[in-house]
Design a protein around this nucleic acid. Structure first.
Lengths: 167, 167
DNA sequence: TCCATAAAGTGAGTATACTCATTGATTGTC
DNA sequence: GACAATCAATGAGTATACTCACTTTATGGA
């Protein structure tokens, strides 16, 4: 395969696809004032009440720092209830508030419509193929790589000195 | 199709895919100290020297604000040369420095390896299918929506005719 | 019990990635 | 040539999205 052109590179196509997906989601959910991440976090909390932030981060595929920010914003909007863990005093146990559950109910049809709009350019058979390949890609890469989901320690502990401007 | 589960939703899968792609790219390019975006911007500038920021933003599929930040960081590292436009004094004309061009040469094999690693979980035939569907999804959605990518040929096109009732 | 290790949350730092508003320059039209 | 619409860049504001370092707490083995 050729990756001469920027537009033929899988990485670029994936980024644009994500851009478009977020744009469509945001457009559909404008009235709900929910971002894709906030929706994912609240949905995960609805399905798994009373888990700590590290567990939720793994469920939603976010690192702990990012989730910390998301949780803070949702807590400020009274969509998340947050209390110290009883068994483990390091942890904070989270729960979606009744308002959040109502919001999720209201969001259901909207979110489904957004998901359908994302795949709209593809024919029905293509949609199934696309989602299947996407799932395969994500699952296997997730198992192999050190994506945030797996929290695997890098094999090479030797770290280069960070240059200025480095990420 | 069912989107009951978070993990079955296209939006979530696309986000995870992007996460993984960035992670692989960053891993491969760590010696080069280049992010995917920085690479895309520099490559676009190599192929289209002396364009202004708005044109570059369209080429790289970024909004102008985001590109402004990226350009500032690249300019600080002396990878971009930035001068006021001669014909249009509102604009700033950009060019990849010789150091940037050398960096792009060094990056070539590494970036290709990263792109291949992203698709590695798929069989060869699946890779072609995936990239084809991804391209279709991105192209059609881009044409329909008002995604940041407004394709316009910047190289030879002098000026777009201004449509009166457009937008 | 002591202690090395690890895990949970957090803060700092950096880099996307958008919206909206503003300022200054340009252009088509009258 | 004046003017309205538009456009280029930029800043403020918000939300991801990571790494690294640090503190506090937990845990397992000597």
């Amino acid at each position: 395969m050729r990756y001469d052109d920027l537009y033929a590179k899988p990485g670029h196509l994936i980024r644009r696809c994500q851009q478009i997906a977020v744009s469509i989601f945001t457009d559909e959910c404008r009235d709900l004032d929910l971002t894709p991440i906030q929706y994912a976090v609240l949905l995960a909390l609805k399905l798994h009440p009373d888990i700590d932030q590290a567990t939720l981060a793994a469920l939603a595929a976010l690192d702990r720092s990012t989730l910390g920010d998301v949780v803070r914003r949702l807590q400020r909007r009274r969509l998340i209830d947050r209390r110290p863990g009883e068994h483990d005093r390091r942890s904070k146990v989270l729960r979606a508030t009744p308002a959040a559950l109502r919001l999720l109910d209201r969001a259901e049809a909207t979110v489904r419509r957004a998901q359908e709009r994302i795949l709209d350019p593809l024919a029905p058979a293509e949609r199934r193929t696309f989602v299947r390949l996407l799932s395969k890609l994500v699952d296997i890469n997730n198992a192999l790589s050190r994506a945030p989901m797996t929290v695997r320690a890098p094999s090479d502990k030797v770290r280069r000195p960070r240059r200025k401007g480095a990420r």
